[in-house]
Design a protein around this nucleic acid. Structure first.
Lengths: 338, 338
DNA sequence: TTGAAAGCGTTACCAC
DNA sequence: GTGGTAACGCTTTCAA
């Protein structure tokens, strides 16, 4: 932290290079400048260690180089991958991500939106289709492209990139049914914070009903989103409530892993005694033993596509109907556990 | 994306409230304003949905509300936790994190530092003690507090919050030695990208030498940082090279988990036939079977402390010698696997 | 407690 | 291809 006297300004560069500020600005933004002067300016920049002040440019030009993104949690590899996709799409265009972590709370999301909008982001990406009225109002006034990720809203704020979590879950029910399982349970968190988790549970329940497999067997345990450590207790609770259960769907691969570990502890073989399915196709699903049957979703791809969709919107100005809703594929990945 | 006509400005709020811009500014920044006028102004703000432009304030006041943070990867729960700690420390003070993902590359780090400095962050946090000469130069010129995290540099740029990865690794060697293991191997990535991983390997090697346990048995496999899926192949390679190995240290819990899965596949019992130790105390270390003996490091705490150290420096202006280096504790957590 | 004027460092716009 | 001038929307500073 060597506090130098005063950092050099554009005017300093201009003076050293013997040109006007405008010429320096053109060099920086890629305007038309003769090669000779461009070289002189560049040399002055290097010499002085000049770094342009983003705030001034932003104020003057009226546009920032920010894109805001809100995720429920950075600790989930799911969303971390999505963020990576977003970065990979946007960074090449000089856009810097402003990241917000909502902790799965809609009011926290609203607070973050309010705070992030102060930086005039060019666009904003949210997670999910559930938002507070205040959030919607803020975004509608903002006049920038908005993308809702990881879901397919019936009434999108603007655009969306995602899939139906309920349908994905339903697909897994069908898979298990096809494999001969009939007494299927579901493990998820106790709170409604994880909206996509709740959607998956609903998809499961509707599948059970549709296939005539009796009443849904749902265990809600632990704060959403539940992870490895919740899987075990949830599995225990399920076996206590419905001892004849022959298959278990879990809201995520993490909880599925925990559930499988609990089975190991009890001497239950998976899938021999009981089948276990996850959701998300995390690394653990194909590294653990037995490997976990799961739903594969391209988390990175969601981020990448979201970035592309935003870039398109920034170009065109207005979203075309065609890209309002961008559907991301999911698929059942059959492995050893179910 | 409803592009309204023109967003309201501070002058608009002032007009509606019947006061000057300055009074509005004071209301926003918590200056002294009579309760009556404050209420009128607040009402005007709500009515118009006014959102202050951060760039203008930044330019005028000369200081931003940004803090920059660079991590090697967001996908690692380690660094995700550190980022959470940083956010938790800084957000209450109105500071917004500007996050950069270096992908473990020092030149990418330099590029990000250059790009992030344009936003005039109040402070910046980096990961590790290794940086390019360009990065050091940029930061020394920047005149802002700098914190290096996850390590204890001999020659810190400014401040540091971390621990000695080599010593932590050494502690694990001692633990294994104490438990009676004598033919100890080490699994890590093939590249030098993961500097902390390399430090851990060095700590291991020095411990092996110091204890007279023969030549180090190091398997370098896969791109750093290695994860679950590399652990298995690395374990296989180790057993091929040194079949009599009785204990294995892994550069992380992720690779330790992969190694254990490989043992299961081969019918080797852990720790009966071979002991396995990890590093990091990730959730998987206490959820899998057997539970993994590991080194516990408070990743969240590193972020939190880094945030506090930065806030201190912003207050005092100059770092006191006492907080130049902030040591974070680590400890051997003995579980079932070793 | 409140207001008026003068910047902050850049880019847009229009001359040359 | 290059330069001057006027914003951009705030906060600082100084007066009232």
């Amino acid at each position: 932290m060597t506090a130098g006297p005063t950092p050099p300004r554009m005017a300093d560069v201009a003076r050293v290079a013997g040109v006007s500020k405008m010429t320096v600005s053109r060099v920086l933004t890629g305007g038309s400048v003769s090669p000779a002067t461009r070289a002189r300016v560049q040399q002055a920049i290097d010499e002085l260690g000049y770094v342009a002040t983003a705030a001034a440019g932003m104020l003057s030009s009226g546009r920032s180089e920010f894109v805001a993104a809100l995720v429920p949690s950075l600790a989930s590899s799911n969303f971390a991958d999505t963020v990576r996709g977003l970065t990979d799409a946007l960074a090449p265009h000089g856009l810097q991500l402003l990241l917000g972590d909502t902790g799965y709370h809609l009011d926290q999301e609203e607070a973050l939106v309010k705070s992030l909008l102060r930086h005039q982001p060019r666009g904003i990406a949210l997670t999910g289709r559930h938002h507070s009225a205040g959030t919607r109002a803020l975004l509608e006034r903002a006049g920038i492209p908005v993308v809702e990720m990881w879901d397919l809203p019936e009434r999108p704020i603007d655009m969306a990139v995602g899939f139906s979590n309920a349908k994905a879950s339903l697909a897994m029910v069908c898979h298990l049914h096809q494999r001969g399982y009939r007494r299927i349970g579901f493990l998820c968190g106790a709170s409604e914070l994880d909206r996509r988790g709740t959607d998956r549970m609903r998809g499961y329940a509707s599948g059970i009903k549709a296939l005539g497999l009796g009443e849904p067997r749902v265990i809600r345990l632990g704060d959403s989103p539940i992870t490895m450590s919740h899987g075990g207790p949830a599995m225990a609770a399920l076996l206590q409530a419905w001892p004849d259960t022959d298959a278990v769907m879990c809201v995520s691969d993490m909880s599925a892993f925990g559930a499988i570990m609990e089975c190991h502890r009890r001497g239950l073989s998976v899938p021999g005694d009981i089948a276990v399915a996850g959701f998300g196709n995390f690394e653990i699903a194909w590294c653990c033993h037995p490997t976990i049957t799961t739903i594969s979703v391209d988390a990175y791809g969601i981020g990448l596509r979201t970035g592309e969709v935003l870039l398109d919107a920034l170009d065109d100005g207005e979203a075309t109907a065609a890209r309002k809703l961008s559907r991301i594929d999911f698929s059942v990945v059959e492995r050893e556990s179910a």
